[in-house]
Design a protein around this nucleic acid. Sequence first.
DNA 1: CTTTCTGCAAACGATTTGCAGCAGC
DNA 2: GCTGCTGCAAATCGTTTGCAGAAAG
Lengths: 147, 147
Amino acid sequence: MTVVPVVDEVALRLAALDQRYTALRKALVTTLASSGRPLTIPDIIAATPTLPQSTAYRNVTALIDAGVVRRVSGSDDHGRFELAEELSGHHHHFVCSNCGQVDDVRPTPRLERALAEAARAVEEDGGYHVAEHRFDLVGVCAGCREA
Amino acid sequence: MTVVPVVDEVALRLAALDQRYTALRKALVTTLASSGRPLTIPDIIAATPTLPQSTAYRNVTALIDAGVVRRVSGSDDHGRFELAEELSGHHHHFVCSNCGQVDDVRPTPRLERALAEAARAVEEDGGYHVAEHRFDLVGVCAGCREA
DNA sequence: CTTTCTGCAAACGATTTGCAGCAGC
DNA sequence: GCTGCTGCAAATCGTTTGCAGAAAG
């Protein structure tokens, strides 16, 4: 989506931690910003084939520490990474129960209304200190359905 | 909860795959049925200290194949395992964003009503083939809050 | 110049697998 | 008795880390 403002915001957040905004980190942010889904480390390396694994891991970690990137969990236990919602916009995830791939899902007003009520129900009835909630959809993705 | 019927159902599902319902597997199912939260492999071994890791992993895998056990993802990427909902009853999860531990949360009618509407919104507006959805609560658990 | 980043290779921890003997049916 | 399970040890896979040189500010 809005890639240019994202890049500026990232620069600020990194600077706040005495971190540099190097060419590799710019490439990583751009890759995540334009992917439309959370990426695994192999995905990220595929997008920048010269990038060594260790650097990919270290840069992802640095961006997580800066609050720019978030780790999401799919159905398998492989790390998947996306931009923080403040940078990419609010969305949900569609998780393929077959291959584990995760796609972004833009919410509809009707869905958000229902989820807001669900969150209220939890807060008022549950007695939990709930900071946030995750609502993921699970099914079989298009790629797996035709195979 | 209802441990005895669970045990019978597990026997049937294992038999359908030419799998045996051994003493170790009974112990594993009982452990999961009475835990009130998804367990990691270390948790499982702590409950049956003579159990070797490799056997724990193999039995968990066998029970997943039989549809008796389900892997759930917390905030970290460590496998956590619980009985399938058909055996344990419908529930949600409270995930501690600090230590990663996951607790079961019994739903309230109001919450379920809101979530049913959310699921309907996804099906009718989204065009996804949604088989199930996950609604997890995220916050800091009691143990971490006092520390 | 000083501090952080990069790339390589080695280390690490969780999970998996090969194999020989034991157990369920 | 045949087939599947167990336990050990070794292998594997994703991820992390130590170090020496290159790059950013």
